[in-house]
Amino acid sequence: MRLFSKIARTGIVTEALPDQPENPITLARQIDERARALLGRAVAIREVDAGSCNGCEVEIAGLPGPVYDMERFGLHFVASPRHADLLLVTGPVTRNMAVPLRKTYEATPDPKLVVAVGDCARTCGVFAGSYAVAGPVDTIVPVDVYVDGCPPSPADILRGILTALGRLDPSREGR
């Protein structure tokens, strides 16, 4: 009973998305309208750590929590690329993760989107030039949206995902 009185006292803590992102979000290529129409407000996300320092993962772990609550946008994480519509890729792609990342992409049924999270996913960051790094994410799989930042905040990651889905254009803004 103490649990439920605490729940009643705390109430809903979900915050609205801030108007402006802290870091730039880049749409890397034009997204197929058919994919956008199909995915709409029900998107299953598979997170792929391709060699990140886990800074981005800490931020991503905030998404399903009460404050950022990705479920209100119809987004949820899934355990298998076969269930996924969108891959959330972090980190510079290491040599060990290049093949698994490629295989994960191939295991995802069409239509599918890729959002690269963090500076490393775009430029390899401080890991650039390392013998263990195969290259940035777009050398392995096609990327639809980049979310910059080291690490980007959960709100920026959410905006990145919503940009990929075409839900942040003012004309087609959801809720």
């Binding site: 439920f4 729940i7 705390t10 109430g11 809903i12 803590v13 979900t14 929590g65 009460p66 609550d69 479920e71 209100r72 119809g74």
Partner: peptide, 9 residues
């Protein structure tokens, strides 16, 4: 979701 303090889907 409501019991967890989230808006939920």
């Amino acid at each position: 979701a409501r019991l967890q303090g989230r808006r939920g889907a």
